[in-house]
Nucleic acid binder design. Structure first.
Lengths: 197, 197
DNA sequence: GGCTTCCGCTAATGCTCATTAGCACTAAGT
DNA sequence: ACTTAGTGCTAATGAGCATTAGCGGAAGCC
């Protein structure tokens, strides 16, 4: 029984995530979430302070996980090997979006359901993440390894591929996670003009 | 005063589209839409049958437009030139998403706000559109012009790029529509292994 | 002037919700 | 046995919202 998660609040976050993914934040009621964990709506308030707070916890955790994954994917990769760095970053990005499709999906679509103080915080984390990719590409261009007219467009394109994965990917379906990750890593490199995946 | 559009309902659809884009369908109220056209909420019912109907009209019109532009982009392009066909299809796709970002944005995100009979209809149109791209890529692979391990993944990737454009593109911003369209056409070809843009 | 059509308005109506109050039960701990 | 957390429940509360009723005015037509 830790303080943050005492199992019950985790269950609630998980159930809410599933419902937010399927119905959207606005269309999900506290009663729905309660039913998903075997409880009436009002009882949820014993474990979480509000519906908005559920969304906030889900979204900030997601963005932090994503950034953490990104950093650890690049840890130990030579800074002067932009090809390998972009490949690793993209693979981590895509793997995260495949493995945590609900989190990524909600994280992308429900930003507007966040109420001001939190919205800005999440948006800041998000643009920090975007900047990582743009920087990666700019380095590659500067080193003459990439051929991209606009690093910004290329980074948007690569990031958007990940969001797409979160939409259509199904665990246990075909193609599997590894195949998608590999393929999308190749896509990213091709996008910036690297030959032979 | 024509029957379908008598200006007023068009104004309402346009205002609603803007609001749905910014706030989402659920979070937009009839009073909001009314205010945007200078009228109280209930007065809207003189021009449109319901809020849901506004969404339905927006979304079906969007999907039909998209399919129409796709077909006309390919009209007259040699069937045995998959490179040119994919380039044209992608350019039309991206141009549509840049030029009608609100329509495309709402069309992608509010499918779940559509009530059953319509949701299915829109989803059918959408998968018809997806299939066009997959077929295009399969032909290219069969003719040996494309190098794609999975036509399905490649088509998803290309389509997702378009959705991304609808999210971040701003009319009058940089890069402009033509630059984005050209760049994304090149991205699509690179994705399927075509060299030299 | 009287009739009709259009279109806007305010006041219901009838939900659906998030959230709060207040009560009850259980399991420890003492 | 008494108390205290912890957790659930039902019944408010209070707001927001789509939609409907019913009224009134303006414009055109006779």
């Amino acid at each position: 029984m830790g303080r943050t998660g005492s199992t019950r609040s985790e269950e609630i976050l998980t159930a809410a995530l599933e419902l937010f993914t399927r119905l959207g934040y606005e269309a999900t009621t506290m009663a729905d979430i309660g039913a998903a964990v075997g409880v009436r709506g009002p009882s949820l308030y014993r474990h979480v302070p509000s519906k908005q707070d559920i969304l906030v916890r889900i979204m900030t955790r997601t963005m932090e996980d994503l950034l953490r994954t990104h950093r650890s994917a690049l840890a130990g990769v030579a800074p002067d090997d932009p090809v390998e760095r972009l490949r690793r970053a993209t693979e981590a990005h895509v793997r995260y979006h495949a493995r945590h499709r609900r989190e990524a999906f909600v994280g992308n679509r429900e930003i507007r359901s966040l109420v001001p103080p939190h919205r800005e915080r999440v948006l800041t984390l998000r643009s920090e993440y975007e900047r990582c990719f743009r920087d990666l590409i700019e380095v590659g261009v500067r080193l003459g390894r990439f051929d991209a007219a606009s690093a910004r467009l290329a980074s948007y394109a690569i990031l958007d591929l990940g969001m797409g994965v979160a939409v259509w990917f199904r665990e246990g379906g075909e193609p599997g996670e590894d195949a998608v990750v590999w393929q999308y890593g190749q896509f990213a490199l091709r996008l910036v003009g690297v030959r032979s995946g």
